[in-house]
């Protein structure tokens, strides 16, 4: 084979290598873009309702009382009701849930003196609070509302600054062994948007302007607390207890 023919053959082999390389590169790029794109779009394209929705008829108090629903912990027949209007993205609510609430549970809920009712009150300044409230209710559909409620507050700093907290919310569901498909379908829908929106209207009707707002109720007597401390709750319960009845403390 002549020198010229050898060079020609080498050139052809080089061109063939380059063609094969380009084909492999394009294949890897298409597969990579497809896989990552599918993963992102399948998360982003969910129709998760993350803002309050318009619910008709809430200006009528009877309708509002019917649609708005808190989530109750403790003995439903307990004489006192401790009510919180809370926002999962609010640091104050996080502080209350982690530092005050365990004491409230121990002193009043576990002893049957009071039941605790949490009403969602996601504030407009917190972009993920409405979705978080819905997520907790989706967990509630699987009887794990309070476990999820605690997860949200414990991990508040981890999800509240995210662009999209959906993956974090799904992760917390996984951590408490929720049935993931059902939970994800609920989260990426408009389920519970109506009740959370109604709870906001109820809070506004009761004069709630910030979170956490704690109220103590007995026999229709509803008292908002000036401070969100265990001592303030204890004092309210004592004040609302007739002298002959013990408060259990």
């Amino acid at each position: 084979m002549s020198n010229r023919q050898e060079r020609r053959k080498a050139r052809e082999e080089g061109a063939s290598d380059t063609n094969r390389f380009n084909q492999i590169l394009i294949l890897v790029a298409v597969l990579g873009i497809g896989a990552v794109g599918w993963s992102v779009s399948s998360s982003m394209l969910g129709t998760a309702v993350a803002e309050p929705i318009e619910v008709e008829g809430l200006d009528d108090m009877a309708t509002l009382a019917e649609v708005a629903q808190g989530t109750t912990r403790g003995d439903p027949d307990a004489p006192f009701t401790i009510i919180e209007f809370g926002d999962y993205q609010c640091p104050g609510c996080g502080g209350f849930a982690l530092t005050v609430k365990p004491g409230v549970d121990q002193a009043f809920i576990d002893t049957g003196i009071a039941k605790f009712v949490f009403y969602d009150f996601p504030l407009p300044m917190h972009p993920h609070a409405f979705l978080a409230a819905r997520a907790a209710r989706c967990a509630g559909d699987q009887d794990k509302y309070w476990e999820y409620h605690d997860q949200l507050f414990r991990n508040q700093v981890n999800w509240s600054g995210r662009v999209d907290p959906v993956s974090a919310f799904l992760g917390y569901g996984e951590a408490i062994s929720l049935e993931q498909d059902t939970f994800e379908r609920c989260l990426k829908s408009e389920q519970h948007a109506e009740v959370v929106s109604a709870n906001i209207v109820l809070g506004q009707a009761l004069g709630v302007t910030g979170t956490p707002t704690i109220l103590v109720e007995k026999d229709g007597d509803l008292r908002p607390l000036m401070t969100n401390s265990l001592a303030a709750i204890e004092e309210a319960i004592q004040l609302m207890t007739p002298a002959s009845e013990p408060t259990g403390n």
Binding site: L31, L170, E184
Partner: peptide
């Protein structure tokens, strides 16, 4: 490197909350 880029990109997309679990 192109394959590795997409693996790292997937993990990064997860880190910034753009993907599900």
């Amino acid at each position: 490197a192109l394959a590795g880029f997409f693996v790292a990109l997937y993990l990064f997309a997860h880190n910034i909350g753009l993907t599900g679990p």
